[in-house]
Design a protein around this nucleic acid. Structure first.
Lengths: 363, 363
DNA sequence: TTAGTGTATGCAAACGTTAGCTCACCATAA
DNA sequence: TTATGGTGAGCTAACGTTTGCATACACTAA
């Protein structure tokens, strides 16, 4: 087939173990020989066979990443970038696959990576009402293949994970609206079996509680998990919500944000004068053509970077056969990006109106 | 390390070649033995070692896909889906990597796939002013690794490719605007060393020519290739263009569309009453919160599907050592999706006004 | 001279499969 | 009975590397 190390050895008139060593710059081989071998290898256009290398050396320096596009979108790319760059920096290789929010597909990729002898697995897992591949993950871990969960987590699984501080992000956004004087803050949420969705809702509730605002069920509207896109759901939920006359709306993700903005625009409501708006996650297109949105930003690159670091640390640890590492749970802070849609920049003007509202409702 | 075929053989009290055959359902092994071996393999939780399998069998059934996010976005996902599903259907495995519009990164991934002995490569290539990895692609082909280029092509390289009918799509959109009565049709374009960009511009020009409209240079504005996003560029180009008083604008891609809509909105221009708008590629968020856009849709899934089919056909052909296949160039038709922004639905109302224009300019 | 010590290289056994070949066994037909 | 053929299973040589160990050689020191 193609040129092997033996062909190079023959051409250089050395044994093939010498070629192998020269090509990886072993100090055992003299500079002269090394240089000659490298030159000949290049002349022959020798491409090492990674398959043979992996089999022989019993290591693949490969980590797998299974992600999941379905609900969530724009964050993924910087997460991947963070992972790719970190993994490369550590001299590892990354194999990534999109499970498309499908349990069976995810299972197939896990199996694939297992057969390929990936040394560690990063996963942004599928978690649906029907379940998850938790048991497969457990079997990987039992078989000494470390797993780091990204962006979601399994409360039942004692493994490393890195997520955004969803609770804190939602808390901060809600508190921000409260500080601007809002008391009737609507929240568009999703399916609570997703840990991130659950945690955001809790953050919202806690912010209300800490500011002595009574949580009102009718100000929470839930979107159904309709795939591929539930923009229509976000739109419907917002239409419903608007009947409750909130003075502010907070949406739990990008899709909901788009649906909400559509509804708001249809109703002819002015943002932020008549309604303050904050979304979880930036929607760049909307910020450009609708108005600069106040959003909770996730540090997606950092999430990827931390996840990659964790998995590689574990893999290296395993190579050295040291004692087991502690499990680590990392929560990456979010940032509230205050722009136009929340009305903070109009605060002076709005205060009166809102405080009037407050008096009417609260005192 | 982990459980091997020999462990299974021992447990089943057969030779390990028998295990190997039983596990791939060879007809040489009796049903009873096969069943027993499968049961034992499952009990031991045996996971075949793909690395060893590939080395021994001298085939990887793997194809690589190197894509490229940088300019272009929403199309990629359906392209990947088309590739993934087709590749899986054919019993192959897909390894995909994002070159991020970076020549060096692309080169690294090409090398990686080469070392991993991928049997074929699909590539949505980086082509910049500084060049491309054309020579690497050539060396792959010379080494009997087929290459199929996706979404772009190299005029200098005689290889399979599959692209959208960019010329036709731009032609159809332009002709549509002309049929609606427009004569001053502005066009936002990009860097012409991209074949798709060049072809779209040519489609626009040809439509004008065929309808006897004189091509006016000042109605073409070009965005600079500023990364990561050139929304600002699209915005600036559109601002410039609007000074020329076009009655319609056509944008060459998503990013330009967003920039254009931002500019249009800022200027307080009503679409479609005062300005008809068509974009190349759908921008879902804009269609929801701005207005349903008339767009040239690419059949992205199909592009992926065709590309995957072509590469796998070549790989299989090579397995059978038949004579060489002809190179094939596939151009996948686009579809003009007529919605609100082009004004077709208002045609009755606009006709008079526009035809007045036409008389003024043309007769 | 001889032993000792590096240094540079070669030898050969792994790594976990696949697959071509051989072989044992049994049933059938002559 | 013997030849014939088919079936089911085992033996073993690959596949292209890596790597521990052996070895050859040239020094230096005793």
């Amino acid at each position: 087939m193609s040129i092997t190390i033996k062909d190079v050895a023959r051409a250089a008139n050395v044994s093939y173990s010498t070629v192998s060593r020269a090509l990886k710059n072993s100090p055992k081989i003299s500079a002269k020989t090394t240089e000659k071998i490298r030159r000949i290898a290049k002349e022959l256009n020798y491409i090492p066979n990674a398959v043979a290398r992996e089999l022989s050396s019993q290591k693949t320096t490969t980590v797998g990443f299974i992600y999941n596009i379905g609900t969530h979108k724009s964050n993924l790319d910087p997460i991947m970038e963070g992972i790719e760059e970190t993994v490369a920096k550590e001299g590892f290789q990354l194999l990534s696959f999109n499970s498309r929010e499908n349990l069976k597909t995810e299972h197939n990729y896990l199996r694939f990576l297992h057969e390929k002898r990936a040394e560690g697995i990063l996963i942004f897992p599928v978690i649906t009402e029907e379940g998850s591949n938790l048991s497969y993950l457990k079997s990987l871990i039992k078989g000494n293949i470390p797993v780091v969960v990204i962006d979601r987590y399994f409360p039942e699984l004692d493994t490393d994970y890195v997520v955004s501080d969803n609770f804190g992000g939602a808390y901060e956004a809600t508190a921000h609206l409260i500080k601007l004087g809002h008391r009737r803050i609507g929240y568009i949420t999703g399916q609570e079996y997703q840990t991130s969705v659950y945690d955001r809702l809790e953050g919202y509730k806690k912010a209300l509680e800490d500011h002595r605002i009574i949580y009102q069920k009718e100000l929470i509207k839930k979107v159904a998990p309709k795939l591929p896109s539930s923009i229509e759901e976000g739109w419907r939920a917002t239409k419903d919500l608007l009947k409750e006359r909130p003075t502010a709306i907070f949406t739990y993700n990008e899709i909901a944000t788009v649906g909400a903005l559509k509804a708001i625009r249809e109703e002819g409501i002015n943002v932020p004068e008549d309604l303050a708006f904050i979304g979880f996650d930036e929607v760049a297109v909307a910020s450009h053509i609708f108005m600069p949105l106040t959003v909770v930003m996730q540090q997606a690159y950092k999430i990827g970077e931390m996840g990659a670091r964790m998995i590689i640390e574990r893999v290296k640890h395993l190579h050295q056969k040291k004692d087991c590492l502690e499990t680590r749970h990392i929560s990456v802070k979010t940032k509230l990006l205050v722009r136009d849609s929340c009305g903070a920049k109009l605060k002076g003007r709005m205060k009166v109106n809102l405080e009037g509202d407050i008096d009417g409702f609260n005192s």
